[in-house]
Design a protein around this nucleic acid. Structure first.
Length: 175
DNA sequence: CCCTGATTCGC
DNA sequence: GCGAATCAGG
């Protein structure tokens, strides 16, 4: 993958919008978050400064001598967290605002506990987040479960059950 | 351990 | 110029 004007443009835009390097990498595709960060610096785009959970002070390890450390020339910026998507709720009554992550559980006996969706958007999914889609892909409230996925599974324990229930067992499982 | 961005340096 | 490896921190 090479940095075409179009890709650089998208990178610049997404970075300005506050998306993390990994999210941008996921969106662009074909590049790692390191590649994104490296490009951001080469483009002299403003770095992220003290925004919730990131930022890193200057560093001076590795191979002394050659390569004079470049002084940081970053100007502080406004905090940058992707705006939370105003989405509709899903099978769980919603209270006020930020819902705490709830470990999806299941007691073989009787009750099935529906996990509260973390409401992640496509670019926020990782290898260990539940990728169960929720909502209408056409509408902008579409998102993914995002709870902790089971080992070697694209879904959390709850959605894995829904996804892989045997045909014979399928029947009265309200969605 | 998960994640974040920053930096270095071989290519 | 590129980005993996590495560092530093939440």
């Amino acid at each position: 993958m090479n940095w075409t004007d179009e890709r650089v443009e998208r990178l610049t835009k997404l970075w300005a919008e506050g998306l993390s390097a990994s999210q941008i990498a996921a969106q662009l595709g074909g590049v790692s978050r390191n590649a994104v960060i490296g490009k951001v610096h080469r483009l002299n785009l403003p770095g992220r400064v003290k925004a919730g959970g990131n930022a890193a002070p200057a560093r001076t390890p590795k191979r002394t001598s050659t390569a004079p450390a470049r002084p940081a020339t970053f100007a502080p910026r406004a905090p940058a967290r992707p705006a939370a998507r105003p989405v509709g709720s899903e099978m769980v009554k919603e209270s006020s605002e930020v819902q705490p992550y709830v470990e999806p559980t299941y007691r073989p006996g009787r009750d099935v506990v529906v996990p509260i969706s973390r409401k992640l958007i496509l670019t926020e999914l990782t290898e260990r987040t539940c990728k169960w889609p929720i909502g209408d892909p056409i509408k902008d409230d579409f998102h993914f479960c995002g709870c902790e996925a089971q080992e070697a599974s694209p879904y959390c324990s709850y959605h894995a059950k829904l996804a892989y229930q045997p045909v014979s067992d399928r029947r009265k499982t309200a969605r």
